[in-house]
Structures are given as C-alpha cells and as structure tokens.
Design a protein around this nucleic acid. Structure first.
Lengths: 217, 217
DNA sequence: AAATAAATTTAGACAAAACTAAAAATTATT
DNA sequence: AATAATTTTTAGTTTTGTCTAAATTTATTT
C-alpha cells in the first residue's frame, strides 16, 4: 500500500464512522484536499485491490480487508500521538500533523513494540480509542457537552474537532482530559453555558460545548 | 526535499566520506540500486536546487547546503536507531531498515526532542557518530581489527559493514560494542586471527576482522 | 414529467522518478 | 596516437497520482 492509498483508506474509514452508507466522491475529495476526479481514479485502484467495494455513482464502502487496513493506520497514528505527548512532551495540538507522517511507517513489529513501551494505552491524547493489534478497541460512552442537562456534573473525555486552534483554546482555559465540569447555567438565546471548573465559573459558547465530549459522573 | 532527493543526498554524503573527489554516477547508482541514467536526471535536479555542484562527466560534490542537509538526515537516522535499540529493544541488525524510513520524517522539533529524550547520545548502536543539531559530531579514532598488531588488546567500537548477516554473526559470537579482545595469533596464509575474548579463544577470518572497528587499549 | 442543478465519471494532459536503448564523452589499451 | 572499452548522458517511455474540461448520471425543482 502506498502513502496515498493509505490516506484514502483512512479518510474513507473516518467518514464511514459518521455515515454508514456509501461514502461519496466529493466528501473524500474534501477531506483529502484533492479533486473529485482524482478520487474516482484512486477509488478504482482501491477496488481492484479489494480494499473497497465500489459501484459507479454509488460511492464506496470498505471491505473487511480495507477496514482492517484502516484500523491499523489509525492504531499507528494514535500510538505515535501518545508517544509524542507522553515521552517527548508535545502538547495535544501539535501531535496530529506529526502523526500524519509517522502513521505511514511500515512495520508491525515496530508498532507493537511501541504499544508495549507505552503500556498498551487504550486512548490517545484526544480521548479517541486505540485499536489493538487485532483491530479491537474500547467504545467510549461519551456525549457532547452541549447535549448535557443543567446542574449535571461531567468529566471531559475528548474532543470532536481536534484543530490546533480549538485545542489551544482548551489549554488556555485549562480544560484537559479528566477535567471535572458542572453546568451552572444555559443561556436560551445563544445556548452558551456557564460552567464551574476548579471552583471558578467560566462562560463558554455553544460551539465550544458542541466539540467537547464528556461523560456524566 | 522529497523522499528520493533525500536518499540521493545521503548516498552522496556517505560516498564522499570515502573518496573526497567528485562522486561518479555509477557509484551512486550502485548504492541506490537504480540505473546510471536515473542518477544523471536526479543529479541535475539537485544541482538546480544548489544541493550539489555538478559538471557533466565530472561527478558531483555536495555544496555547503547539501552537506548540511545530508548531516541532518544522518542525524535522524542514527537517533532513531538509538531509540529503537535502547527503548524498543530491537537488536542492532534490525534497526537499519526501519531507520531508513524514519529518517524521512520532517520535523526538526521532533528530532531535537528525541535527541533530548535519549540523553543526547554521541554514537549510534553501530558505533557511528551522531551529528548534533548544527551538524557537529565527534571523530572516533578507530582502526580495523585486521590492521592491529599481534598481542595487542583492543576494544570493539563499531562495524564497517552493517549488513544483518554480519551483525548476526557478531551477536552469535557475543561480540558487541565495548567487548575487549586480545590478538593471540595471526595466520600468515589467510590472515585469519585467533583472538581471546572473555577468557575464550575464537578463530575469526580476515573478512570479519576487516569489518570490525576497534581501538587499542 | 420535463428542465435544471449538482455530483460523478471519462478523456486527455502533466510532473516526478524511474526505466531502456542509443549516442557521446572519457579512460584505458595496444 | 588510434582504437577499444567503459562511463555518462540524452532521448524517448512508463507508472503513479494528480489535474482541467467535457460528458454523463443522479437529484432537485418547477
């Protein structure tokens, strides 16, 4: 599998988690920052290699083989992220771009040794589950902070958007994985929240709350 | 710089350590396992980017810019080798192929953090010096075991050939960096050596002795 | 249901990096 | 010094992954 093929498989995997039907050409092109025609070309090649099922105009779905390949790429990506944050002291907004490169290093032995070195982590620094060598991963029962009711206490589990600007926002407000938050008020007009964290009240917008995964505690 | 350009620069660097004049096309082709015509094409591109000086039929030499680029690739390669051996318990014959891939990961910050994490090592697992972030490295005063006189005591510093088969041979005979060796006998006919190591006498061929760097102690 | 809009695919082209085969230059040999 | 052998370069192809522009299919509106 080439670098480029791996990127396509990974993007198709991420899209199929959101919408489980056939993934359409334009959606892939948007994620990979290429053009629809390029996607058609690549998808044909992936279909020949039996990594995806593809019918003209009907979008693609991953085959079993493609799904497993995708999970192994995600596994590498997330294990490298853990390494970068825990061992090399990178912040959680810096690691994504680096992991995009490291995920293409081809060695099962390397990634299994890395997994062991890191103590077989189950989640990456953004709270996303890490597939094990067989592709199995935990299912985190999480919901968006924007969906939680008033006066509930929650624990921060992860992010939906993992763009550097959002992660830096969280850092600035000292919100990290494990942070405990209580919802004090919800403004009807703009759905902004007043939350209590570490004894301090903070106002956060609906957009922020809509990108933060939490679990009621 | 592309993956392929980096490989060419690295090979030209290694060849220029051995012969300091212009490096010829065929030598590069041999190392990179490509054809002379491909080398000519690539060398023209590298010359345009001012990484090498090139005149038709006269071979190439690295420019200052090219030399620095080469050292940074070597730095990455050797630091990743240290990581693989010291942190992930790989053997020294396994790491070269993996480091060939890892050396192309593009991030100065990552490699400097890795350097720090490893405690700023000065040598890689094969005894080769690791350039620092400015390209500086120690010069190991080493000679080949085959060149050392009778009855001398030496310490093993590194290898000339780092192919898996040679490294596995050394492992099998428990010869590693730091091993102390005394030369008991030198056979005039085939230049094979009888050496004393850990109280045991071993016979080694001239070919082995010609690929093992040592220092007289 | 026909017309229009949007999405997708095809056809043809391009850049990077490799190749083969032939031509040109350099080096070695007689 | 002339010829032969070797090395290097040029010219023309190939493959991978991308692109634009045109054609086709599917979806949406009127």
């Amino acid at each position: 599998m080439t670098y480029s093929e791996e990127n396509y498989i990974k993007v198709i995997y991420h899209l199929s988690l959101v919408s489980p039907k056939g993934i359409n050409t334009n959606a892939i092109a948007g994620m990979i920052e290429s053009k629809a025609s390029s996607v058609t070309d690549m998808v044909k090649k992936l279909a020949e290699k039996e990594l995806v099922d593809y019918q003209k105009y009907q979008g693609v779905t991953l085959t079993q083989k493609g799904l497993h390949a995708a999970k192994m790429i995600v596994r590498k990506h997330r294990l490298w992220e853990v390494f970068l944050v825990e061992k090399l002291d990178f912040t959680w907004d810096e690691v994504h771009a680096l992991a995009e490169e490291l995920e293409h290093i081809k060695s099962e032995k390397l990634i299994n040794r890395l997994d062991e070195f890191l103590g077989f982590p189950k989640e990456d620094p953004h709270g996303d589950p890490i597939p094990d060598r067989y592709g199995q991963m935990i299912k985190v029962e999480k919901q968006l902070l924007s969906e939680v009711g008033l006066n509930k206490k929650v624990m921060c589990l992860g992010v939906k958007d993992s763009s550097p600007s959002f992660l830096q926002y969280l850092d600035k407000h000292q919100i990290s994985l494990g942070s405990e938050i209580e919802i004090i008020n919800k403004e009807a007009f703009d759905m902004s929240l007043t939350i209590l964290m570490n004894g301090k009240e903070i106002l956060i917008s609906n957009k922020i709350a809509g990108n933060l995964f939490v679990k009621v505690i």
